[in-house]
C-alpha cells in the first residue's frame, strides 16, 4: 500500500494550491506598444521564483499561439532555447491589440485497471520538452515545478509524474497514459483533476482593439476593462476575471512587478476581485507585472474528472506617467 499512498500524496500535491516556493512561469515581451507595422516583439519565456528573472528554467513554447486583432493567427519565429529562458519573436504587422500566449487543458490523476494503479497525465511531451510547457506554463507550482526538479533537465525515463519527488518509483511506466482519452474502458476508482492553464500578454500596434477580449466561457479567464496596453503607473488598472464565462468574485490575484533586484520593497500584492469579479490594481511602480490567479473547484468540463485546477497568468506593462 506504500505505492498507493505515495500516489495519493502525489495527487494531493497536484491538486492543492501551489506551494509557497513555486517557480512562476512568465512571458516577457520586449515592448507592448508599437507605432508602426514593420516591427517584431521579441519575448523571453521562462520559469523562476522572481518573475522575469532568467535564473531557473526555459519555458517550452511549443504551445504558444498568436492571435492577431483581425482574428487570424500569427506565428512565433526565431525560437531559441537557452539554459534559463527561451526566446521567440512575433511580427506585429497588423494594427490593433494582439494576444500572445498559451492556453492548455489536460487531465492528471489516477485510476485502476483490474485493481492495479494507473496514472494519466504524467509527462506528455517528448524528450527535450521540459515541464514548463503544458501545465508548467500556466502558473506557479504546476507540473515539474512542484516536484522540485529543474525544469530544464530532461526527466528520467518513466516520466515526470506529478509530484514525483525523487528516486521512489511510484508507478509502472506501462501504467501511465498521456491523456484522458487513453484511459482504458473498464477503469475504476477514477481520481482525476482537470488542469487548465493560460499564460498570455497583449501587444498593441496603433489604436487598441477589443476584438480578442471576448471570453471563451471556459475556465478561468481575464477580460480587460482598462486596455491592457494602456496602463500607467498613476492610474489604477481594472480587469474582470471570469470562471466559465461568469464573474469570479473574491478571487485571489497575485500581482508582482519585475525588477525587484533594484529596490528594497518587493511590491508584491495579494488582491481580491470584487463581487463583480473586477480586480482593481494600484501600481506601486512602473514596469512589467506578473499577474496570476489560481483557483480550484469541482466543476471540470471533462466528464471523467472530478476536480479542476485553473491558473491564469498575464504579463502587463505599466509605464511611468
Amino acid at each position: 500500500m506504500l505505492r498507493k499512498s505515495l500516489l495519493a500524496a502525489a495527487i494531493a500535491t497536484m491538486a492543492v494550491s501551489a506551494p509557497a516556493h513555486a517557480h512562476r512561469a512568465w512571458l516577457l515581451p520586449s515592448i507592448t506598444v508599437l507605432s508602426d507595422l514593420t516591427q517584431m516583439v521579441t519575448v523571453d519565456a521562462g520559469a523562476s521564483t522572481d518573475p522575469f528573472v532568467s535564473d531557473h528554467a526555459p519555458m517550452n513554447v511549443d504551445g504558444i499561439q498568436v492571435w492577431a486583432p483581425d482574428g487570424s493567427m500569427g506565428k512565433i519565429e526565431n525560437v531559441g532555447k537557452g539554459r534559463y529562458r527561451t526566446t521567440f519573436d512575433v511580427a506585429i504587422d497588423k494594427p490593433g491589440t494582439w494576444r500572445i500566449g498559451m492556453a492548455s487543458s489536460s487531465v492528471m490523476g489516477s485510476f485502476k485497471v483490474n485493481g492495479e494503479d494507473w496514472m494519466v497525465g504524467g509527462r506528455r511531451r517528448g524528450p527535450g520538452g521540459p515541464g514548463a510547457g503544458g501545465a508548467g506554463a500556466g502558473g506557479p507550482g504546476a507540473g515539474a515545478n512542484a516536484a522540485g526538479r529543474p525544469m530544464g533537465a530532461t526527466p528520467p525515463a518513466g516520466g515526470e509524474g506529478p509530484g514525483e519527488g525523487g528516486p521512489r518509483r511510484m508507478i509502472d511506466p506501462s501504467h501511465m497514459v498521456a491523456s484522458v482519452d487513453d484511459i482504458p474502458a473498464g477503469a475504476t476508482d477514477l481520481n482525476l483533476t482537470q488542469m487548465d492553464n493560460r499564460n498570455e500578454f497583449f501587444v498593441t500596434a496603433g489604436e487598441p482593439t477589443d476584438t480578442l477580449f471576448k471570453p471563451t466561457g471556459k475556465g478561468l479567464e481575464m477580460v480587460p476593462i482598462t486596455p491592457p496596453t494602456d496602463l500607467v503607473a498613476n492610474e489604477p488598472g481594472k480587469f474582470r476575471f471570469l470562471v466559465d464565462g461568469k464573474p469570479a468574485p473574491d478571487l485571489k490575484v497575485t500581482v508582482i512587478p519585475g525588477g525587484q533586484r533594484y529596490r528594497e520593497a518587493d511590491h508584491a500584492q495579494e488582491l481580491t476581485t470584487d463581487r463583480d469579479g473586477v480586480l482593481t490594481v494600484a501600481w506601486p511602480v512602473a514596469g512589467f507585472y506578473w499577474v496570476n490567479a489560481s483557483l480550484a473547484d469541482d466543476k471540470p468540463s471533462v466528464a471523467k474528472a472530478s476536480k479542476r485546477r485553473m491558473s491564469y497568468t498575464v504579463t502587463l506593462e505599466v509605464v511611468a506617467p
Binding site: L34, S35, Q39
Partner: peptide, 10 residues
Amino acid sequence: GNEPGTKWLS
C-alpha cells in the same frame, strides 16, 4: 526602411 521614423513615435 526597416526602422522608419514612425517607429519611435510611441
